[in-house]
Design a protein around this nucleic acid. Structure first.
Lengths: 332, 332
DNA sequence: TACTGCAATGTAAACGTTTTCATATCCGAT
DNA sequence: ATCGGATATGAAAACGTTTACATTGCAGTA
């Protein structure tokens, strides 16, 4: 492992000069710089990230913190957003350190400790909920951070998502235009900002179109296929008038479809179902799912980009909406 | 950020003693240790990973290197294996640093440079191919490494996968027992060990059952849905006698199904198709895919476990097969 | 008592950088 | 010829640990 010292020795200069030459500092003769760069290449020099981070008190590493990912996940959301983050990070010479918030809380180590121990330059959070202990920590912390799918207000904290309100309104307008008047909302969880925001969009269209808002039309699926299935199994038999269901996620829509099928409710003839996310399975569902496509990779990319600007103190809006797409298939 | 120095000051001991107390060294009075531990908690002390790594010349970080992952991946393989690796890593207090080998080779930085710059304790590689430049690097490198789905021979290099040979034989026995005599193999790529090993399994059963091995029955799908589709579009019309197809991956099987459907070939009546991997889409395919289930999460977990043993110099076999499961559905 | 040896602690070097401050060199202007 | 002021370089501190080696103190033994 050749170090800056070895180069300095061979080049007959001080380590300070080598450091300056390598880092592109202005005050070094073109001739000296060339010699040092040449030597660095010859000796296969690579800077020691630890040493640099130690003195600079900050590494060139982003933390990628993901919450609520279980073993056999039925979507590639995490993978996609991670790749997006990675793409941008690498373009600026940064690396990604993983941190998974276990659901079973065995992982007591807080995100802050994690970030501090590794002198992370900043952190990107995916899948966090408002009731997560980590969410509070952010407020107090000094660590730059960008949240995906969660609103932010603080100085060093940014936020990236699609315009969930508008997207939900698009879905609802579509359903109303198709003639539906009895539309239920299958909520994810109240602690997830995306779920409540989509719900607001749902409500706003009901109001605009003067459709009665019924409290019993708010179902809860906990963002889970099984819970959605159970909810619909319980709800559908008593509500033959229901003609459309707007689900806060595709996974829940799949559970709903399963329940409907078992109860002999035909989709979309008797019940139109719309999902959200456009996960891979959406187009393979039977019938293929009408849904809102989110580009998670793009989200990750934009999140990393924003994080970098925050770190560098560059001016940037702390909240960004990226484009989405309403995909009409056969389910509703 | 409180450091070891702050604790030493408050406790009226030297930083060496604090370090020893914190690291559980034997030579420190229980009383002193208790006082220091207490102080550490009070001052919310967290060790600086950079400083430690710098002096120890090795961090407590595993590199997770993944190759050939593209944007809209249609499976959760990477996500799953990554989570497996993560699970074990965290259980021993290690973190995971990502490294993606871009297909477009813009990412010139080698895995070795990556590992050295961050003083990685070791590296786990997923999805590498034998012709990958990185594969060669491993031989020369001194960095402990475990490969997933790629054979290894070197001292500090281990390998984890399922028994692809046996699995392929299971598939083939199944097909032969169903009466098939004209069975083609849809290969991934020759540079992928899993593909060639499965091919060996395919051949071995043909030989055992005295079935003629035909060179034109070896198709190439490049592990891609599109290429598989194209291959079958070209092959099927000229080979009405073909009654079964063994695909080296589910994704290729999906492409094959698509081709068959467009050509009016009914599955499984006219053509039995078997895949490999049991990705999420396999059970959603039409017809649902008969395939070999691989537990990628488990693979990742075992890979991390093996890596740790290699690092610690503990005795361990450098090659491990984990269980697989043959899943019979409707496609073949 | 004086010595041996071990247990507990301290001292200081080392890890590989960046960076502040000081120094030396050179060029042009007076 | 002298000075001013860049410009290029060097010396050394600092980052927060671990650890080899030195020191101290104390119990046990001769």
């Amino acid at each position: 492992m050749t170090s800056i010292k070895d180069i300095a020795l061979k080049a007959n200069v001080s380590i300070a000069t080598v450091s300056r030459a390598l880092n592109g500092s202005a005050n070094v003769t073109p001739h000296t710089r060339a010699r040092i760069l040449q030597l660095a290449k010859e000796l296969d020099y690579h800077p020691n990230a630890m040493a640099r981070s130690l003195v600079q008190k900050s590494s060139r590493i982003f933390g990628y913190i993901v919450s609520g990912i279980k073993k056999g996940a039925k979507h590639t959301i995490v993978q996609d957003s991670l790749m997006g983050v990675y793409d941008y990070a690498r373009s600026i010479g940064y690396e990604i350190l993983m941190f998974v918030v276990d659901s079973d809380k065995q992982n007591k180590k807080s995100y802050l400790d994690f970030a501090r121990e590794h002198s992370l330059a900043g952190v990107i959070m995916q899948g966090l909920r408002t009731d997560d202990a980590y969410y509070k920590d952010i407020i107090d912390s000094q660590i730059p951070c960008v949240l995906i799918d969660l609103p932010a207000d603080c100085e060093r904290v940014g936020s990236v998502s699609i315009d969930n309100y508008a997207a939900a309104r698009t879905v609802m307008r579509h359903l109303v235009e198709k003639g539906h008047r009895h539309i239920a909302y299958l909520s994810g969880m109240d602690e997830a900002a995306v779920s409540t925001t989509r719900f607001q969009g749902y409500l706003s269209i009901l109001k605009e179109k003067s459709i009665e808002q019924r409290a019993d039309y708010i179902l809860h699926g906990n963002f889970s296929e099984e819970d959605a299935y159970a909810a619909l199994r319980g709800f559908l038999p008593g509500h033959p008038e229901l003609s459309a269901l707007f689900c806060a996620s595709d996974l829940m829509a799949l559970g709903a479809i399963k329940a409907a099928r078992e109860l002999g409710v035909r989709i979309p003839e008797q019940l139109a179902i719309v999902g959200f996310d456009d996960i891979l399975l959406a187009s393979f569902a039977d019938p293929p799912l009408t849904t809102v496509r989110q580009d998670f990779s793009r989200m990750g990319y934009e999140a990393a980009k924003m994080l970098y600007k925050i770190i560098k103190g560059q001016a940037t809006p702390h909240s960004k909406n990226i484009p989405y797409e309403f995909v009409v298939r056969q389910s509703g």
